[in-house]
């Protein structure tokens, strides 16, 4: 039997949270272990609870869901820290909402206009898989948001003294390779690619691959 994913539910509205718990309780892989309605309280409490994924509604008490994720990561993001994944949810999907999800450090965004199956898939994926992202999808999102490629070249300052592996990985990304194709393009092992990506991510002090892509896009290291 595979490992059950421990899920936290952060919803400002109790009825909405109850609805989500009813749903998640039916999924064998998921185990709801924590519930909270207040974002600030959750920041304090969640470190004491072992959770793999937190489903965060953007309408929390005290602060918004995206601010909760941002504050939590700012406080807890250190090298090697084992942090939970965050799936942000809200009423409607939109480009600004999707960008906010990327910027705050959410691993995924599933809004209420998507199906319950989509939500379950997102939670299971966030709790288990290596967090790879679709570069084309992100590029399309950045363009829809009007983000200019190379608009913040100050990011480049953080890329001084790259290791050979990190440089190879960056070069592969600059050539337009997807994450899954990097090991083939560079000749590095999947594990080495993963480690290099984590190292670059650490230089930018960001939590997710989507945030990493955003930084590289703003730095002009990923083609538009």
């Amino acid at each position: 039997m595979s490992k059950r994913i421990r899920v936290g539910l952060l919803f400002g509205d109790s009825a909405t949270r109850d609805g989500r718990r009813l749903l998640l309780d039916t999924v064998p892989e998921l185990d709801v272990v924590y519930e909270e309605e207040d974002g600030l309280r959750a920041i304090e409490a969640i470190s004491d609870v072992s959770v793999d994924v937190i489903l965060v509604d953007n309408r929390l008490r005290s602060i918004s869901g995206s601010d909760f994720i941002r504050k939590y990561l700012r406080r807890n993001l250190t090298d090697g820290a084992n942090l939970p994944a965050f799936v942000l949810t809200g009423p409607f999907s939109s480009v600004p909402m999707a960008m906010e999800a990327v910027r705050c450090g959410a691993d995924d965004l599933v809004t209420e206009d998507e199906s319950a199956e989509d939500l379950i898939d997102a939670l299971v994926r966030a709790g288990t898989e290596d967090k790879l992202v679709d570069l084309d999808e992100l590029r399309a999102l950045f363009q829809a948001d009007g983000l200019v490629n190379g608009s913040n070249t100050r990011w480049l300052l953080r890329l001084a003294d790259l290791s050979a592996g990190e440089q190879q990985v960056l070069d592969a990304l600059a050539e337009g390779n997807e994450f899954a194709e990097i090991h083939e393009a560079t000749g590095l092992s999947v594990r080495q690619v993963h480690q290099s990506l984590n190292a670059i991510q650490g230089r930018f002090q960001v939590a997710t691959r989507a945030q990493l892509v955003l930084c590289l896009y703003e730095a002009g290291l990923i083609p538009a």
Binding site: D18, G19, R21, L22, L23, T26, R59, P91, E112
Partner: peptide, 28 residues
């Protein structure tokens, strides 16, 4: 909108949960 979200999530939850425990449907 918040109320509609509640209805939506409760309905989704009950739809799944009722397969395991029909009583949940009535309560929901």
């Amino acid at each position: 909108l918040q109320r509609v979200s509640s209805m939506l999530t409760l309905t989704d939850g009950a739809r799944y949960a009722a397969r395991l425990e029909p009583e949940i449907a009535t309560r929901t």
